Simulated assay, not measured.
Amino acid sequence: MSLKECLGKVTIVDFWASWCGPCRRENPNVVAIYKELHAKGLNIVGVSLDKDAKAWKEAIAKDKLTWNHVSNLKFWDEPIAAQYKVQSIPATFILDASGNIVAKDLRGDELRAKIIALLAK
Protein backbone atom coordinates (compact mmCIF):
# COMPACT_ATOMS: atom_id res chain seq x y z
CA MET A 1 0.00 0.00 0.00
CA SER A 2 1.34 3.43 -0.83
CA LEU A 3 0.39 6.66 0.88
CA LYS A 4 -0.52 8.20 -2.48
CA GLU A 5 -3.25 5.55 -2.88
CA CYS A 6 -4.73 6.61 0.47
CA LEU A 7 -4.75 10.36 0.04
CA GLY A 8 -8.13 12.06 0.25
CA LYS A 9 -8.91 15.74 0.52
CA VAL A 10 -7.31 15.49 3.96
CA THR A 11 -5.34 12.56 5.35
CA ILE A 12 -4.27 11.84 8.91
CA VAL A 13 -1.16 9.70 9.25
CA ASP A 14 -1.55 8.31 12.76
CA PHE A 15 1.49 6.73 14.44
CA TRP A 16 0.42 4.53 17.34
CA ALA A 17 0.82 1.07 18.91
CA SER A 18 -1.34 -1.41 20.77
CA TRP A 19 0.88 -1.03 23.87
CA CYS A 20 0.64 2.80 23.92
CA GLY A 21 -1.89 3.91 26.56
CA PRO A 22 -2.21 7.52 25.34
CA CYS A 23 -2.69 6.24 21.76
CA ARG A 24 -5.47 3.90 22.80
CA ARG A 25 -7.19 6.63 24.85
CA GLU A 26 -7.17 8.94 21.79
CA ASN A 27 -8.55 6.27 19.43
CA PRO A 28 -12.25 6.88 20.29
CA ASN A 29 -11.83 10.56 19.30
CA VAL A 30 -10.21 9.59 16.00
CA VAL A 31 -12.94 7.00 15.32
CA ALA A 32 -15.64 9.66 15.89
CA ILE A 33 -13.88 12.14 13.58
CA TYR A 34 -13.49 9.47 10.90
CA LYS A 35 -17.16 8.45 11.11
CA GLU A 36 -18.26 12.07 10.84
CA LEU A 37 -15.89 13.26 8.11
CA HIS A 38 -14.79 10.29 5.98
CA ALA A 39 -17.66 10.80 3.53
CA LYS A 40 -16.53 14.43 3.10
CA GLY A 41 -13.01 13.39 2.07
CA LEU A 42 -11.07 12.49 5.23
CA ASN A 43 -8.77 9.48 5.06
CA ILE A 44 -6.64 8.02 7.82
CA VAL A 45 -3.61 5.76 7.60
CA GLY A 46 -2.60 4.07 10.84
CA VAL A 47 1.10 3.29 11.19
CA SER A 48 1.81 0.94 14.05
CA LEU A 49 5.03 0.73 16.04
CA ASP A 50 4.02 -2.71 17.27
CA LYS A 51 6.24 -5.77 17.07
CA ASP A 52 3.51 -8.33 17.84
CA ALA A 53 1.11 -8.81 14.91
CA LYS A 54 -1.55 -10.47 17.08
CA ALA A 55 -1.64 -7.62 19.62
CA TRP A 56 -1.69 -5.05 16.81
CA LYS A 57 -4.60 -6.69 14.99
CA GLU A 58 -6.54 -7.23 18.22
CA ALA A 59 -6.17 -3.53 19.09
CA ILE A 60 -7.44 -2.51 15.63
CA ALA A 61 -10.51 -4.72 16.09
CA LYS A 62 -11.16 -3.77 19.73
CA ASP A 63 -10.85 -0.04 19.09
CA LYS A 64 -12.91 -0.31 15.84
CA LEU A 65 -10.25 1.34 13.67
CA THR A 66 -11.83 0.84 10.24
CA TRP A 67 -9.28 2.70 8.11
CA ASN A 68 -6.11 1.38 6.43
CA HIS A 69 -3.26 0.21 8.66
CA VAL A 70 0.36 -0.63 8.02
CA SER A 71 3.20 -1.94 10.14
CA ASN A 72 6.53 -3.58 9.52
CA LEU A 73 6.38 -4.89 13.12
CA LYS A 74 9.75 -3.26 13.81
CA PHE A 75 8.86 -1.33 16.99
CA TRP A 76 10.89 1.94 17.05
CA ASP A 77 12.78 0.84 13.92
CA GLU A 78 9.63 1.34 11.83
CA PRO A 79 10.93 2.88 8.55
CA ILE A 80 7.83 5.03 8.04
CA ALA A 81 8.25 6.51 11.55
CA ALA A 82 11.90 7.25 10.72
CA GLN A 83 10.83 8.99 7.51
CA TYR A 84 8.49 11.26 9.52
CA LYS A 85 11.08 11.66 12.33
CA VAL A 86 8.65 10.31 14.94
CA GLN A 87 10.26 10.38 18.39
CA SER A 88 7.18 9.60 20.52
CA ILE A 89 3.64 8.33 20.05
CA PRO A 90 0.86 9.10 19.58
CA ALA A 91 2.02 11.26 16.68
CA THR A 92 -0.34 12.56 14.03
CA PHE A 93 0.44 14.31 10.77
CA ILE A 94 -2.34 16.02 8.84
CA LEU A 95 -1.74 16.08 5.08
CA ASP A 96 -3.54 18.06 2.43
CA ALA A 97 -4.73 16.48 -0.84
CA SER A 98 -1.23 16.86 -2.33
CA GLY A 99 0.40 15.05 0.60
CA ASN A 100 1.92 18.15 2.20
CA ILE A 101 2.05 18.23 6.01
CA VAL A 102 -0.19 21.08 7.16
CA ALA A 103 -0.40 20.30 10.90
CA LYS A 104 0.81 17.75 13.40
CA ASP A 105 0.14 16.31 16.83
CA LEU A 106 -3.38 17.69 17.22
CA ARG A 107 -5.83 15.75 19.41
CA GLY A 108 -9.56 15.73 20.19
CA ASP A 109 -11.46 18.94 19.44
CA GLU A 110 -8.36 20.64 17.98
CA LEU A 111 -7.90 17.81 15.50
CA ARG A 112 -11.58 17.82 14.53
CA ALA A 113 -11.63 21.62 14.03
CA LYS A 114 -8.51 21.53 11.84
CA ILE A 115 -9.91 18.70 9.67
CA ILE A 116 -13.23 20.55 9.24
CA ALA A 117 -11.39 23.75 8.25
CA LEU A 118 -9.23 21.91 5.72
CA LEU A 119 -12.19 20.07 4.20
CA ALA A 120 -14.02 23.38 3.75
CA LYS A 121 -11.27 24.70 1.43
Results as ranks from 00 to 15, higher is better:
residue 75 F to N: 10
residue 119 L to C: 09
residue 46 G to W: 06
residue 53 A to S: 11
residue 18 S to Y: 03
residue 109 D to Y: 04
residue 104 K to P: 00
residue 97 A to P: 01
residue 101 I to S: 10
residue 92 T to I: 01
residue 74 K to T: 08
residue 108 G to D: 14
residue 109 D to W: 00
residue 97 A to D: 11
residue 76 W to T: 15
residue 8 G to Y: 02
residue 27 N to F: 10
residue 8 G to L: 06
residue 87 Q to M: 15
residue 56 W to I: 11
residue 66 T to C: 10
residue 58 E to T: 09
residue 28 P to K: 01
residue 53 A to Q: 15
residue 89 I to Q: 08
residue 37 L to E: 03
residue 85 K to M: 08
residue 9 K to A: 02
residue 94 I to F: 01
residue 101 I to N: 12
residue 120 A to V: 05
residue 105 D to P: 04
residue 40 K to P: 05
residue 51 K to R: 12
residue 49 L to H: 12
residue 90 P to H: 07
residue 66 T to L: 12
residue 95 L to P: 00
residue 44 I to Q: 08
residue 59 A to M: 08
residue 50 D to G: 03
residue 39 A to T: 15
residue 65 L to C: 01
residue 96 D to Q: 07
residue 31 V to A: 08
residue 107 R to Y: 13
residue 36 E to V: 01
residue 67 W to E: 09
residue 44 I to V: 14
residue 26 E to L: 01
residue 25 R to E: 14
residue 40 K to G: 04
residue 74 K to S: 10
residue 13 V to S: 04
residue 85 K to R: 12
residue 62 K to F: 06
residue 57 K to Q: 15
residue 49 L to C: 05
residue 96 D to I: 09
residue 4 K to Q: 13
residue 66 T to D: 10
residue 68 N to W: 07
residue 15 F to G: 06
residue 80 I to A: 12
residue 17 A to D: 03
residue 46 G to K: 06
residue 48 S to T: 11
residue 1 M to I: 10
residue 86 V to D: 12
residue 43 N to P: 04
residue 38 H to G: 02
residue 24 R to N: 06
residue 31 V to K: 13
residue 14 D to G: 09
residue 61 A to P: 00
residue 64 K to W: 05
residue 19 W to M: 13
residue 41 G to S: 10
residue 111 L to R: 09
residue 96 D to R: 13
residue 114 K to H: 07
residue 33 I to C: 11
residue 76 W to Q: 12
residue 30 V to C: 09
residue 27 N to T: 13
residue 116 I to N: 01
residue 17 A to F: 03
residue 60 I to Q: 02
residue 78 E to F: 01
residue 21 G to K: 15
residue 43 N to Y: 03
residue 103 A to E: 15
residue 109 D to V: 14
residue 114 K to P: 13
residue 2 S to E: 10
residue 102 V to N: 01
residue 6 C to H: 13
residue 84 Y to T: 08
residue 29 N to S: 10
residue 49 L to V: 06
residue 111 L to W: 02
residue 88 S to A: 15
residue 38 H to C: 11
residue 38 H to E: 15
residue 39 A to P: 03
residue 17 A to I: 06
residue 91 A to T: 08
residue 53 A to V: 06
residue 85 K to L: 11
residue 17 A to E: 03
residue 107 R to T: 05
residue 70 V to I: 11
residue 85 K to V: 10
residue 112 R to G: 05
residue 114 K to D: 12
residue 8 G to F: 03
